[in-house]
Measured scan of single mutants.
Amino acid sequence: MDPFVVLVLCLSCLLLLSIWRQSSGRGKLPPGPTPLPVIGNILQIDIKDVSKSLTNLSKIYGPVFTLYFGLERMVVLHGYEVVKEALIDLGEEFSGRGHFPLAERANRGFGIVFSNGKRWKEIRRFSLMTLRNFGMGKRSIEDRVQEEARCLVEELRKTKASPCDPTFILGCAPCNVICSIIFQKRFDYKDQQFLNLMEKLNENIRIVSTPWIQICNNFPTIIDYFPGTHNKLLKNLAFMESDILEKVKEHQESMDINNPRDFIDCFLIKMEKEKQNQQSEFTIENLVITAADLLGAGTETTSTTLRYALLLLLKHPEVTAKVQEEIERVIGRNRSPCMQDRGHMPYTDAVVHEVQRYIDLIPTSLPHAVTCDVKFRNYLIPKGTTILTSLTSVLHDNKEFPNPEMFDPRHFLDEGGNFKKSNYFMPFSAGKRICVGEGLARMELFLFLTFILQNFNLKSLIDPKDLDTTPVVNGFASVPPFYQLCFIPV
């Protein structure tokens, strides 16, 4: 058959498939802009700032609406009420993970971030239990974070109060905490193996944040037939998995079943207990991918939040002064901060919360999916439909947070200066898919920041009023603009 005829037939089939998918069930789905064949609503979305586009569309179609990214149908949730109703009140029905062709290629359905069903539930339950087990290797997770915080302070001392970009050092600290939990080992910041790991993690975040990856996920045929950065992403992930597998083999040879040292040991012990169960989800494949998931999810998000926190503290020296006064009063100079201190430091706690609220790190979270046909607000959402959640619409709700575009710790303080919780605080998402490392991340943010401010004054290279804190939105995360500062020993 003539190649031209084959091409026309293929394009015609794709067009018909697109029209059929977009028209099927439209009477039951939430409203939304009319999609174009094949490309859907992509032309109506700013790929570099999806969150802003969703906010604009919500003003037209309401808090629940339908979009098509290519052939992929998505239902968008915008605003606290619908997000709570879906992710919390109907948590089980909305607990699936959205379709990610690239991740599915890399992870093969294993791990904790992109798995679904029984596998996801069992691996998540085990990971939560293990991360909360403060007795691994007779050292609590808090001990590990405190140790890394001391190392971080010593690295900052080496800058000798000269101007520096904190990106690298602030990236090393949370990565080392995860390494300590998974591998029972922290690395020197100049260790070549550690630097290679950091390089792969950072490069992957840069790649994932590009519009090209959005295109690959919406048109998965590209993955096999086109060159691009997605190939580098898959190569980096394969490198990390190979490295983790080597460490798993080392653990198998040296493990003491009665004295687990780290996450890998705990997983291997669980595998041993379930070795007679042919349906067990505790396999080497799941261990390797879960460890890679924890490394990827637990490094860049925390380091970016820390980097943004220091920029905001530079911009608002009056806030920094209040935090340091609270540190001096509650902790002093002669001991290290600990998590028990947080309950006695409402202002510092409010500042950490406000940093996370203000920066809105992951504006749309990772997409969910419905696990069955769901009736939601008089609409029928078919099983498997991807759910896109606007966390921006919750964290920047102007009824809950007056002047949401302003950095103001009073958003989390009552009139008496006591810490005030808010149900709208969802930087880790909400419901059954809430970030498994939430507790660890909150511990790291509090301890790293208090250790830094206990030991250093922060000095800006320019007038604080002239510092730009506008986030650089890159399609996946909101990151701070480049800046330098000086760490002046107190």
Score class of each variant (00 low, 15 high):
326 E>N: 01
426 M>V: 15
194 F>E: 02
415 E>R: 10
114 F>G: 08
146 Q>T: 13
61 Y>H: 09
268 L>N: 01
273 K>Q: 15
436 V>N: 01
386 T>L: 09
93 E>R: 07
242 S>E: 15
404 P>R: 04
289 I>V: 12
34 T>A: 11
21 R>F: 10
138 K>P: 13
257 I>P: 14
79 G>R: 01
437 G>N: 02
344 H>R: 14
21 R>V: 12
439 G>L: 07
391 L>A: 02
3 P>R: 02
453 L>R: 04
303 S>K: 13
152 L>Q: 01
290 T>K: 00
63 P>A: 06
371 T>R: 09
458 L>N: 02
23 S>K: 14
401 F>Y: 13
151 C>G: 08
127 S>T: 15
391 L>K: 00
343 G>W: 13
477 A>K: 13
330 V>Q: 10
79 G>P: 00
115 S>K: 03
76 V>P: 01
406 M>Q: 14
234 L>K: 09
476 F>M: 14
151 C>R: 10
160 K>M: 11
363 P>H: 04
415 E>M: 09
265 D>C: 00
357 R>P: 01
86 A>L: 03
132 R>Y: 14
283 T>M: 07
60 I>K: 04
72 E>S: 09
41 N>Q: 00
354 E>N: 01
248 V>T: 06
449 L>K: 04
23 S>C: 10
330 V>S: 07
88 I>S: 07
322 K>N: 11
64 V>K: 00
355 V>G: 00
137 G>P: 12
342 R>E: 09
279 Q>C: 13
19 I>G: 11
266 C>Q: 12
200 K>S: 09
359 I>V: 08
154 E>W: 07
29 L>Y: 12
209 S>R: 12
143 D>V: 08
133 N>F: 06
63 P>W: 00
470 T>R: 11
316 H>G: 02
482 F>Y: 04
401 F>E: 02
233 L>D: 03
412 F>T: 00
138 K>G: 13
159 T>Y: 09
363 P>V: 02
225 Y>L: 13
130 T>M: 13
169 I>Y: 11
318 E>L: 10
14 L>H: 01
51 S>W: 01
128 L>E: 15
134 F>R: 14
272 E>D: 13
251 H>W: 00
63 P>Q: 09
250 E>H: 08
